[in-house]
Design a protein around this nucleic acid. Structure first.
Lengths: 128, 128
DNA sequence: CCGTATCCGAGCCGATACTG
DNA sequence: CAGTATCGGCTCGGATACGG
């Protein structure tokens, strides 16, 4: 039985939705998962793929995702060392749950931006 | 045609996914949308429903959601003033896109927590 | 009841330098 | 190639007080 359509009375501090949202809030995390769904990737490969992420953040987020069981880290003893990150089955299910969100983003970003312009114009008019 | 299952080569800084994720990353925003889907609510009603949010944050996030066209603010001239927040059709579609994520959270939080315990135990063992 | 204004401390995050 | 370590600015966000 799904609870999706029941109206919640409140969101307690420790509820699952809050906890997972905190992780999704980590914007990089989701992007990494979506990328890894395609194929395993190496550290600097991810770094290049995600425009704007710093070495430090990437390292940090990868560690956190591994800790959560959403991806797997595999070090290969070459010289120099190669490290491969791949998504886990659990991570895959999360990525799938994020898909509708990405679709929504692509379809509705324009409308959101338009709403912002309307709002700002309105505020500007009031200020004058 | 849905783009969900195509492998992205990169996530540029301004892509829709990144932009929307930045907003979702605002953890409170999603919770508010999900709450308002049930029924319009007033300021302090929301405040009570979302455990732990400060007055400042609630005010801030509500303004941002209104700006994005995801909810509507309606002030009623009573004494003292009553303000009613309700979700817009656009906001409703976003809330629906978030549903799978909430379902995922409820179903998989346990497994994530278990993975964390395994990871931490492993690290502890190595440190010893 | 519904906010805004101000202060201020914690922690995020980028930059840089260094290691296996 | 794949990270760790350290420093410092800067933003986020809580607490408090006040106004419409």
């Amino acid at each position: 039985m799904k609870a999706s359509h029941l109206k919640p009375d409140a969101y307690a501090a420790g509820c699952p939705t809050r906890q997972i949202l905190d992780r999704i809030g980590d914007k990089w995390a989701v992007l990494i998962l979506l990328l890894l769904r395609g194929e395993p990737m190496r550290f600097n490969q991810l770094r290049r793929a995600i425009e704007g992420i710093s070495q430090k953040m990437l390292s940090q987020v990868l560690k956190s995702l591994e800790r959560d069981g959403l991806l797997r880290r595999r070090a290969i003893a070459t010289v120099p060392v190669t490290v491969e990150y791949s998504i886990t089955p659990l991570g895959l299910t999360l990525a799938e749950a994020v898909d509708p969100l990405r679709d929504w983003a692509e379809q509705n970003l324009k409308e959101v931006l338009a709403a912002q312009r309307r709002y700002d114009a309105q505020r500007k008019a009031l200020a004058a």
